Simulated assay, not measured.
Amino acid sequence: MSIAVTGASGQLGRLVVEALLKQGAATIAVVHDPAKAADLAAQGAEIRQASYYDPAALDRAFAGVQRVLLVSGNEFGSRVAQHTNVLRAAERAGVELFAYTSIPNIDHNELILAREHRGTEAVLDAAAIPVVRLRNGWYWENYLNGLTHAIESGVLYGAAGTGRVAGASRADYAEAAAKVLTTAGHGGQNYELGGDSLGYADLAQAISEASGKPVRYQDLPQADYAAALEQNGVPAQYALIVADVDAGIAQGILDVETGDLQRLLGRAATPAVEVFRAALV
């Protein structure tokens, strides 16, 4: 069975390819720039070049493929069209399973990040091939950019109030995707994926434990948090999205309690403190 992973040179796609290779799966890494996937080729992946904008290249990339993982793109404003191109190519190839990395609670998720996922899932609703939705929760790695500042200042800032977020490591989500791609019975499934449920005070404690330095959580109004991020060099659009995510966490939108991730992994998800500790080595 041949499995293609799109966006394979990115942070998540790369980990999925590596997880598949460890299982001995015939793995095709679909990338925009093959030079960025040389290490995956060295590990045994077949490299095929295609972009989400190029239907003909996607057709070539999916030739002879039985299963496809579409790792969602990162070009905001263009993602639904890009994802549709990938799905149509998979349909033309007649793949037996099409997996898509989405976001939790899509039916009532009002986050900025959810908008194009919702649009993509609407397209998937009419797919001519079996689809599985991998609704990935938050990555603990999303907090790494602010890790040094939190440790040095002793304060983790955010706008999540007393809300909780069920996160896991990026590698956990990659391993779960590899499990879905290499086993049967997943067509038509919607997996709501999340790990340990933590409040931001818990996250501050995890940073403190990983670093050996005291860190506390300081809650800010959403607009103030976005402004503070921008003042500290975060691009305005990204600062808006980060603050919007925290507001969603305050409402419980990313507190996933289904156990789907743990069942796919056959183990507990990676604790936040382990991700933070590894980043500080």
Rank of each mutant, 00 (worst) to 15 (best):
200 Y>H: 11
255 D>M: 01
228 A>S: 12
201 A>F: 01
246 D>V: 04
244 D>V: 07
204 A>L: 05
229 L>W: 09
240 L>V: 03
227 A>G: 01
236 A>E: 15
225 Y>M: 05
244 D>R: 03
212 G>S: 07
249 I>V: 15
252 G>A: 04
219 D>I: 00
205 Q>I: 01
227 A>P: 08
254 L>K: 00
212 G>M: 05
230 E>D: 10
230 E>F: 00
228 A>V: 01
217 Y>E: 07
222 Q>E: 14
253 I>C: 00
217 Y>S: 09
235 P>A: 06
250 A>Y: 09
233 G>P: 12
217 Y>A: 02
239 A>Y: 11
244 D>S: 07
205 Q>W: 04
219 D>S: 07
208 S>W: 01
200 Y>R: 04
254 L>I: 04
231 Q>G: 13
250 A>V: 05
210 A>T: 12
253 I>K: 05
247 A>W: 08
207 I>Q: 09
203 L>E: 08
226 A>Y: 14
206 A>D: 15
219 D>L: 03
233 G>T: 11
211 S>N: 03
243 A>F: 12
207 I>R: 04
227 A>K: 12
239 A>V: 15
250 A>G: 13
253 I>M: 08
255 D>L: 04
202 D>G: 09
217 Y>W: 02
250 A>R: 12
216 R>I: 14
239 A>T: 15
252 G>H: 05
